[in-house]
Simulated scan of single mutants.
Amino acid sequence: MIFITQGHEKAVGLEVFLRSFVLLSKQHQKSITLVCCKDTLIKNLNLLNFSFEISEKLFLFCNSALKIIEFKKDEISESTRSLEIALSKIKKGDILLTLPTSKDQLILEGQNCKGYTEFLRKRFLNENLCMVFRAFNHTTLLITDHIPLSQVPSTVTRELIESKVNTCINYLDKYFNTVDEVIISGLNPHCGENGLLGTEDSVIDDAVKELNKSIKVIGPVSGDTLHFHNNININQLKVYIYHDQGLAPFKNQFKTIGLNITFGLPFIRMSVDHGTAFDLYGRGVADFSGCYYMLKEAIKLDKK
């Protein structure tokens, strides 16, 4: 089963989802359930000029049938409400797809979370959940993600690197492909130039030595050149130490065609590789190719 949470009510998430959903086969549409506020869904259908009918828990539009789990607006943000409902329904082996929201809309135990990954880390009491980005057969793992740059050196340890790399390898093998080679970036420019530019890269050296006992690992490699290490004949895992270091080359290459994936949960969670685009809301012009790619990848996984 594939559960989809609606995200922010004034973002482009529902628009790109609805425009992608109608392109799927009827058989594939049956595997998808949208968790949403009924009024928000109706508003988005009207904004898209999609004529629709409602039959029990089905929305019928554009020769398509969409199953929904609906809720009413209340004091909790729609992003949080839809996510909590989906998590109460989801089972091991299911797939969770989350549509874009803003960071002020995800609230757990009265506190704002900095994104879906952080919400899930707190919800499942697992600080080592992995933030992974994937497009086609290219995979990027971030050792740290939504933390201030000033905290990165003290956060990165040999144990953290080993844990996240091993988790990512195991989940890639389960859902996508076996990893043949891992390439890890350094933290400082030029990996510290043997201490001239910092000594923090020593923990990465230690992690590489340990990981090399079970898989081929190259690194640490200077972060500004790691993306040149492409070998189309093998399945590589590129590992970057912090958020922008890894996502700059990834997004430059793949634009909005990419998946933001969380590994380490009893199920797989994926999202589109773009944000809310509030400025495009209601205009019907948002690029839905990334969402369509996500749905097709989720359907492949659901078949497994």
Rank of each mutant, 00 (worst) to 15 (best):
Asp302Ala: 11
Asn166Gln: 06
Lys303Gly: 01
Arg269Lys: 11
Leu247Gln: 07
Lys164Thr: 03
Asn177Tyr: 15
Gln236Ala: 01
Lys296His: 07
Ser82Gln: 10
His138Asn: 10
Ile90Val: 08
Arg283Ile: 10
Leu142Phe: 14
Asn252Met: 09
Leu129Asp: 01
Leu129Trp: 01
Gln111Phe: 09
Gly264Thr: 00
Ile147Asn: 04
Val132Thr: 07
Asn194Thr: 12
Asn212Cys: 08
Phe3Met: 07
Gly115Ile: 04
Phe228Gln: 04
Glu118Cys: 07
Ser289Gln: 07
Ser64Gln: 08
Val179Phe: 04
Glu297Asp: 06
Ile2Ser: 14
Arg19Asp: 15
Gln27Met: 03
Asn212Glu: 03
Met294His: 03
Asp279Gly: 12
Leu237Ala: 00
Asn233Tyr: 15
Lys67His: 13
Gly115Trp: 00
Ser51Leu: 13
Phe263His: 10
Glu297Asn: 09
Tyr116Pro: 02
Asp94His: 00
His8Pro: 02
Lys57Tyr: 09
Glu181Gly: 02
Asn63Met: 05
Ala286Phe: 05
Leu48Val: 11
Lys304Glu: 12
Val272Tyr: 06
Phe71Met: 02
Leu47Lys: 14
Val165Thr: 00
Glu84Gln: 11
Leu141Gly: 06
Leu87Glu: 10
Ala286Leu: 05
Leu99Glu: 06
Asp244Leu: 04
Glu84Leu: 15
Asn137Phe: 11
Pro266Cys: 01
Ser202Thr: 14
Cys37His: 12
Asn235Val: 09
Leu129Met: 04
Thr225Trp: 04
Leu226Cys: 06
Lys255His: 10
Phe250Val: 00
Leu295Arg: 09
Cys113Val: 05
Gly264Pro: 05
Glu9Val: 15
Asp206Val: 12
